[in-house]
């Protein structure tokens, strides 16, 4: 044994934390490659929802499908990308129940790295959702005025926002007792957030209290910001509000998540 040659460190550095998180993300990606079926939600949902909502509500809400597309595609993008962020909770819960998490806990690595790694690996899911949603929109005839740049910016915003929100679901994953429980509570939060917004219908058609909620709902801000990027290629108040909102959610829940995780860990 050559232990005497090695340096003992008292704590990890930020550079090491980032490095370890990326290695954990690499592990996540290998797992995705092994079990591609875990991508089913992010592949089927954007295709199904775009077709369903556009043809179901298009005529009623906007007169025809073509006019409805610029309204509904940003809505569906926000919804599907957020739904994609729920999986992190379930996956983390399942992962943490396995023996390998014991090993991670016993290694001299940053406590946050298994969590951060899983969250980073999830970027692949958001990218798939975003690409598929816009592809569907394009096939159905949507041509955003801001062109490809607008699409790219809108995609980035949606991904960053969802990534921030996924910390909330990661928190449920860490504190929940079972994966089914995580799924339940996450859906209960996600449904009102995505549907009680301006994602599918104009807010001014809603009754008082609902209208109020839909207006303050951060998902509405996100949807507005995406629409603006796509149609005008501009970043307005909604852009900054959704970005700040996302960062606030992430800050709060990353602290809570890491705390809950370390408490369980040691």
């Amino acid at each position: 044994m050559h232990f005497a040659d090695k340096q003992i460190s008292k704590s990890t550095t930020i550079a090491l934390t980032v490095r370890q998180s990326l290695i954990m993300a690499y592990r996540g990606l290998i797992k995705v490659r092994r079990t591609p079926e875990q991508l089913i939600d992010v592949t089927v949902q954007p295709i199904l929802f775009t077709l369903m909502f556009a043809y179901l509500f298009g005529g009623a809400i906007a007169g025809n499908v073509h006019t409805y597309l610029p309204i509904v595609i940003p809505g569906i993008l926000a919804q599907t990308v957020l739904t994609g962020s729920v999986a992190i909770g379930v996956n983390l819960r399942e992962d943490m129940d396995k023996g390998v998490f014991d090993r991670f806990r016993s290694l001299p690595i940053a406590r946050i790295s298994p969590l951060a790694g899983a969250l980073i690996a999830d970027a692949i899911r958001y990218i798939i959702v975003t690409v598929l949603t816009f592809t569907m929109g394009y096939i159905m005839g949507m041509r955003p005025h801001a062109g490809f740049t607008g699409v790219l910016e809108a995609s980035l915003l949606a991904i960053v926002f969802s990534w921030c929100v996924s910390w909330m679901f990661a928190f449920f994953g860490v504190i929940a007792k079972s994966a089914a429980g995580v799924q339940g509570i996450s859906m209960m939060i996600l449904f009102p957030l995505t549907f009680l917004s301006n994602a599918f219908v104009p807010v001014n058609t809603l009754p008082g209290p609902l209208k109020w909620f839909a207006t303050v709902n951060p998902v509405s801000r996100l949807v507005n910001a995406i629409r603006m990027l796509l149609e005008q290629g501009k970043t307005g108040t909604d852009f900054w509000l959704s970005l700040v909102g996302g960062v606030v959610i992430m800050t709060v829940f990353s602290i809570l998540t890491v705390r809950a995780y370390t408490r369980k860990a040691a």
Binding site: I8, K31, D102, P108
Partner: peptide, 24 residues
């Protein structure tokens, strides 16, 4: 508890249930 990060550099643990990644 206090120096857990140092302790983790000094130990190897093999659990009762294999602590390796099943999918890898």
């Amino acid at each position: 508890v206090k120096d857990s990060h140092i302790v983790r550099q000094l130990i190897g643990v093999t659990g009762q249930y294999a602590s390796v990644d099943e999918k890898l």
